[in-house]
């Protein structure tokens, strides 16, 4: 049984390459068919806001990469409900499908379920 890895992504897509480099770990793990989960927390939930215009700041669109996660076999996507709520983001209209909002209690259980965690 391969070890499972949870990535907790806490940075906004516009704060530098942190969010992208966190996502790269996820994509690499998916490419190796490893069990990977991705939890958006704190400013990381800003990655899930729809209709962002990366071109306005001459950046590449991270949303497209997030939407492609299922093609890499990464289907365990979660968002911290508290982080969404305090930032006024509705879990209903996120840019990425099938992201499961979690309570603090759920997140505790989620971390327990994975073998290793990286919080970026």
């Amino acid at each position: 049984m391969p070890k499972s890895l949870l990535i907790i992504s806490r940075q906004s897509p516009w704060s530098g390459i942190n969010a992208k480099e966190a996502l790269d770990i996820v994509l690499a793990g998916g490419a190796f068919d490893l069990p990977i989960g991705l939890l958006f927390m704190d400013d990381g939930v800003f990655q899930l806001v729809p209709e962002q215009k990366a071109a306005a700041v001459q950046q590449k669109n991270l949303t497209a990469n997030l939407q492609a996660l299922s093609l890499f076999g990464v289907e365990d996507l979660f968002a911290c409900g508290h982080s969404l709520s305090v930032r006024g983001i509705s879990p209903a209209g996120l840019a990425v499908d099938d992201v499961e909002p979690l309570s603090a209690e759920d997140i505790r259980t989620l971390i327990d379920r994975y073998d290793q965690v990286i919080t970026l």
Binding site: K3, L5, D24, L34, Q116, I118, T119, L120
Partner: peptide
Amino acid sequence: SGLGQLHDAIQSADRLICFG
């Protein structure tokens, strides 16, 4: 080398410890 080496290390180790 590539990020595969990070995943490979995680698979063969008992503990992953990150510093940053």
